[in-house]
Amino acid sequence: MFAYILRRTLYAIPILIGVNLITFVLFFVVNTPDDMARMHLGMKRVTPEAITQWKVEHGYDKPLLINDAATGLDKLTDTVFFEKSVRLFVFDFGSSDDGRSIGEDIRQRMWPSLAIALPVFLVGLLVTITVALMIVFLHATYIDLLAVVTLVVLMSISGLFYIIGGQFLFGKVLHLVPVSGYDGGFNAIKFVILPVLIGVVSGIGSGGRWYRTIFLEEMGKDYVRTARAKGIGERIVLFRHVLKNAMIPILTGVVVVIPTLFMGSLIMESFFAVPGLGSYTIDAIHAQDFAVVRAMVFLGSMLYVLGLLLTDLSYTFVDPRVRLS
């Protein structure tokens, strides 16, 4: 068991190195710091001096991989690669183009992100699984058919429309909640309700359908027949036997996203003007702030890898075949 976990943890290291290399190539090799400077300065005012100036200001003035000018270990460490990419491993994200500390920003902004993403995740999971269970319980009836069609309709609507529609209905017409914005402490609740509601509703379609498929697949297994032959009622078959087995495939898809909840939702946060990491990222994309984007890419990958690890761990909890081998 312990060796298994340790092995999975060690496996994360080459993945993060890979991510780091990919982002480095993407950000510094495909487009050189010169290109970046030129873009930021605007095409018209570009002079070689201005470019150099910009690079010095933002710390891109060193050689990319090997610094021939330096001596000893500095040959390798006094480079853009080391300064900008390797440092990410110790959570040193550097500073954004406007000079703010990215690490500080992330620490501040992840809470509003979580305030929305976590309830969406938990409530969403609960609601979709319940919906799916109810549909499966009514399998092979007209309600089942109707419910499946409804789910397909729900999942055919773009998330953007859920947000726009929700804002319009609850914010503009009914005036139940503010259309957008955010506040700290308990005041956050009134701002959070609508995004959470929308997040949950927009997930019902695809989630409900996926869980329904999983449940139905489990329902066809031999052990369900055994349970029925014991004289167990359909409800217990569903909740005790099927649900427990279905948790295995459900966990694969679900646990992996838990850590990435920290990243928030790009769309939701930008629509609702929530000062979380999602809107942070979008702002950075719009401002073409590569330092922030790079930091978020690395952070996202790290969280994803953590999610993979958690998935492996969660198996050991729900599946005795993994736990006991």
């Binding site: 991510v19 290109d35 996202g300």
Partner: peptide
């Protein structure tokens, strides 16, 4: 497996965003 786990671990939207931003730099240039 290593290749696809690595690629998969980069948040999709961000990878696309970075790539498109970089393309835009190229096109503008």
């Amino acid at each position: 497996q290593y290749l696809y786990t690595t690629l998969n671990s980069i948040p999709g939207v961000l990878l696309i965003a970075s790539a498109i931003l970089l393309l835009q730099v190229y096109i503008d240039g």
